[in-house]
Design a binder for these strands. Structure first.
Length: 263
DNA sequence: AATAGGATCAACCGCTGCGAA
DNA sequence: GTTCGCAGCGGTTGATCCTAT
């Protein structure tokens, strides 16, 4: 149910995301965070708009995102919050961890709106237990296994959050995390699987860093693409900075590998 | 088996708000 | 005070799936 891929007049790809694009975007953001959505696709080598990348990440690729499986409790909460807040989907989404505003909006438009309307006539779900409700929604509860293959385990993720080992202020902070210098390896060699394996040991235990300033234990800044570009743009002309994505990646990786920091 | 029409949901589009210059 | 660029939001679209006939 996705829009077929096509290219617009600016050469930007539209429509369905390929697995390769997903992998690139996920791996990049897990490593560097989303420091600038507009420039990010260039660094990844994607022919997508920043908007499209942001949307894909927020609605689909975030580590803690859930698909399908709206429980009766979630539905009730959406209805209750919609009753109080109206179409403030992002606000409602904040109350439902793992659910994107887009998914909640779709859920409302396709199911809950009708349910609320029919409830005005018959309070049909009052006598449905949770099990019966789940069974009634079994079609919707079909989880896309392909989607889950590349997702970190949500339960572990949440357990990690609640255990307090890393101190997160919110789940959204997880989505914009970055790795410390010790985690860095040549990204180009990583498949999603090996990337996840590599992260497994210390991904959730390492401190999370802000999108732009990756603070090392020494208090120096690790070169994120943001300060990488800033650093180089101060030394070279824009002509000099016309480099291929591969070249950029290579340079960044060599910086990371050699622990070269800027203050 | 074919197909028409409804349902679903990922993705797009346009707009607003906000911070920086 | 104005302009610009970016992030985020909510409405809408359209490709695909599902179901009834």
């Amino acid at each position: 149910m996705v829009k077929s891929a096509r290219y617009d007049s600016n050469g930007l790809k539209k429509g369905a995301w390929s697995e390769d694009e997903d992998n690139k975007l996920r791996a990049y953001i897990q490593r560097y965070g989303h420091w600038n959505w507009a420039l990010l696709p260039k660094f990844i080598g994607l022919s997508r708009s920043g908007k499209s990348c942001r949307l894909r990440w927020m609605n689909y690729l975030r580590p803690n995102i859930k698909h399908g499986n709206f429980t009766k409790e979630e539905d009730d909460l959406v209805i209750d919050l919609h009753n109080k807040l109206g179409n403030k989907w992002s606000t409602i989404a904040m109350k439902l961890p793992g659910r994107s505003d887009n998914e909640i909006k779709n859920r409302w438009n396709t199911h809950l709106k009708k349910r609320v309307q029919s409830d005005h006539n018959v309070s049909s779900t009052e006598h449905l237990g949770t099990l019966e409700y789940d069974q009634a929604n079994s079609k919707e509860n079909t989880v896309n296994k392909t989607d889950l293959q590349h997702q970190p385990d949500v339960e572990n993720l949440l357990a990690g959050v609640s255990s307090g080992s890393p101190s997160y202020s919110s789940l959204t902070e997880i989505s914009s995390c970055q790795l410390s210098g010790s985690d860095c390896a040549l990204f180009s060699d990583l498949t999603p699987q090996t990337f996840d394996e590599e992260l497994e040991d210390n991904f959730w235990s390492d401190p999370f860093l802000t999108d732009i300033d990756a603070i090392t234990p020494l208090g120096n800044k690790l070169l994120s693409p943001f300060n990488f570009v800033n650093e180089f743009s101060s030394q070279y002309s824009s002509q000099d900075l016309m480099m291929t994505d591969e070249c950029l990646w290579s340079m960044m990786d060599s910086y990371v590998e050699n622990n070269i920091f800027i203050n």
